[in-house]
Design a protein around this nucleic acid. Sequence first.
RNA 1: GUGCCAGUAGCUCAGCUGGAUAGAGCAACGGACUUCUAAUCCGUAGGUCGGGGGUUCGAAUCCCUCCUGGCACGCCA
Length: 560
Amino acid sequence: MGVLINLEENIRERWNKALVKGFETKALKTEDLPLFTLEVPKDKKFGDYATNIAMVLGKKEGKNPRELALLLIELFNSIEDKAYIDKVEIAGPGFINMYLDESYLFDIVAEAVKAKSNHGHTSYLKGEKINLEFVSANPTGLLHMGNARGAAIGDTLANVLKAIGAEVAKEYYINDAGNQIENFGKSLDARYREELGEAEVEFPADGYHGEDIRDTVRGYIALHGDKLLKLNYEDRVKALVEYSLEEKLEHIKTNLAKFGLVYDVWYKESTIHNSGAVEKTLEELKKKDFIYENEGALWLKTTALGEEKDEVMIRTNGHPTYFAADIAYHKDKFDRGFDTLINIWGADHHGHVARMKKAMEAMGYHGDRLEVILMQLVRLFKDGDILRMSKRTGTYVTLEELLEEVGVDAARYFFVMRNPDSHLDFDLDLAKSQSNDNPVYYIQYAHARICSILRNLEEDVAEYLDEEKVKLTLDIEKDLALKVGELEKVLVEAGIRREPYKVAAYALELATLFNQFYSSCRVLNEADNIKKNRLKLIMASKYALENVLKILGVSAPERM
RNA sequence: GUGCCAGUAGCUCAGCUGGAUAGAGCAACGGACUUCUAAUCCGUAGGUCGGGGGUUCGAAUCCCUCCUGGCACGCCA
């Protein structure tokens, strides 16, 4: 662990020791360690850290918080380990404010310069195997903006989790079975016959109207001609579906790769059906008495687990539902040895969340080991109007088109910068304009400026990065150093809370502080000691920027 | 009708496991380039935290209620 996390652990530990000492010497009445906060105050005048320990304990002790704080500080000061603590004060209603010896900032810079591309990385989740499933768009169409948001969030979260030590597998679930595929087949068949000149082909009402379906069919015809017309309907559809799924999937893979996203596992729903996993799952649930028959269908007793209604597992036509297959699929993930499963779904699937968790419990797993991140849908704006996205009607902007317009860097940042709970208003015109307002340019610019300084430096920067501690005198230098040190905290928080947008926010804060530093401080053409200190500081900043950009999947250009 | 998410500055959003004077970016207004990249920086202005109750030393944050918007409530996925 890095400087800040260690330091905070030490402070907490020291407070706990102080409390224990208070209990032992009977200076305190209560004998339970209370839950107290250790936070960074909003205002610097309240110190580097503050704790509410006196206010939390005040009632139990029967003392007013300020009076109690006095006693607590006395105990705190009597504990030997003084790591970085310079001064402790009482303030406001009973806060205890702690001021640190600034040498911790020097240590942050030294650590970052030494750790380089590992700066900010920790082993917080070491040993945890996480399966992260996201996008999983049906291979019957192209990737749209909602898929792109999922892709950015998922890939970034995977990077964050890896940076804090977890073992992560990124997985894409391919829905190549079920009703949608039948529908897909009907649509393909209609377009195929249409393209080959058959008049008045009836197109399925709920078919796939997108132009890409025609393209796919034309591609097939170019390769294989009209030979399918001689086959019966079933065989023709089978051949078309097989070809088209393959083609669509390749297209999806290619575009995700362009987006900087490479999966570890591509998992086909059909393997769940073909392997007998669904039947096996059903048997298991039957044994546990969670299955019953009604009106010719097999139902899962989700009501027995607290849900409002039961769910169909096997339809009257003998086919398993998506839900049944999904249970088998998630069981398979657990069986592959993952401790935690994280799925990223569109908010329109939220009805599926509770029953999936309950189903996992019925299967004997902890429901909490399946986590679902729901993203609100993306609203696409063009010329001030909302564009509705629908595969059915074929009106949507594809990931491919987006990347052509705005590039990978801006797209990835934009999609990940917001809390998934919020609707994302994506203004196409703004994104297309490559506006300077886009924060991604601002962040990259900070990096380019550091590179520029290093280019202007006559010597190798390594000559300046000795073991000697840096000394930072200006507030902006200290603020920047502290922000560099915060990276590890941000990654841990973003990882355990599954909130990758915090990483995007951090990148912006870091870049802001660097740009402020840059405008008020020179690095070259300064006295040797200042030059050396600032070179160390900007190198530390460079590593922090590079590492955070890498996690976001955004490039760090050396010139702009 | 029921459930989930959202409602914070003109706009887009942070802050929400209770803490000190509610923040940032954009837009607006006023400044700063002979000096390592002005895609930058500095300053000003901008608020009934959707409304109303409650819980307490303290509420944007927790509870109740109402209002508004989105989504979901299939033997679809």
